[in-house]
Design a protein around this nucleic acid. Sequence first.
DNA 1: ACACGTGTTATGCG
DNA 2: TCGCATAACACGTG
Length: 275
Amino acid sequence: MPELPEVESARQVLERSALGRRIVAVDDHDTYVCRPHPPGEIGAALTERRLLAVHRQGKLLWCETSGIRSRRGAGPMLSIHLGMSGRIVVDGPGADEPDEGGDALPGRPESFSRRDAWSRFALQFADGGELRLLDPRRLGRIRLDPDLDALGPDAGEVDRGEFRERVGRGTAPVKARLLDQATLAGVGNLLADEALWQSGLDPRRPARELSTDELDSLRRQLRRAIRRAIRHGGVGAGEIVEHRRAGGHCPRCGSELRRGTVGSRTTWWCPREQR
DNA sequence: ACACGTGTTATGCG
DNA sequence: TCGCATAACACGTG
């Protein structure tokens, strides 16, 4: 589910519905999702605080938190990474339409819905509402005071000069370069395939061998794909995405798409148009 | 049963 | 130490 566009949607949900509400309890018992924090540590750090602002760079979200009377200064940063299957749900006053409950699970009470089963982290607010991370695969991550220096510039904001310099370097395939979050933050597997297809570039090309024009085109198509995905509610809006399957064809020239592994990810491209 | 996957990180090699 | 490649992580889905 989450690449940069989906994470931006989540950011907007948090901004609209979670700010300013006093935190009274925290469910941080999932030690894998909350690593490296032991259970209770995040709870102790956040109880009685409020989220003040939500930021995003690439696929990482983080929230500023308020100070509290008994301690000096502002609170810690709370960062949220959705991983492969994470979603944010906020309910209570000012929240969006709550999700449907889903099917009950065998061996659980009727009232215990599917989304409860996948709840990996939660903030409970004084008004009775909750913010939850739902994440079946548990590859999402919650942590305090994240290291933001490890992230490259946001893929939707990066300027031309910086893009040329950072992406057009090294002997690794250009797709691997796009996926490296320290080079550029926010590009995932589907977005990379889409932008490379739109700009007619073979994903296996060594990054340093791309011309300036090719890099400019790649950046333009990447930004276009991101804007389009944000507007249409997800990376699934890409033109190539629905054709990434066995027997899929290039929607432009009709050639059969080729499948391979590039940057250790499954990659689909048009062998005729992408050079 | 078995392979696969919209993501990150640890590990190993030259 | 750096650049790059691959395995590992967790777990639902086809």
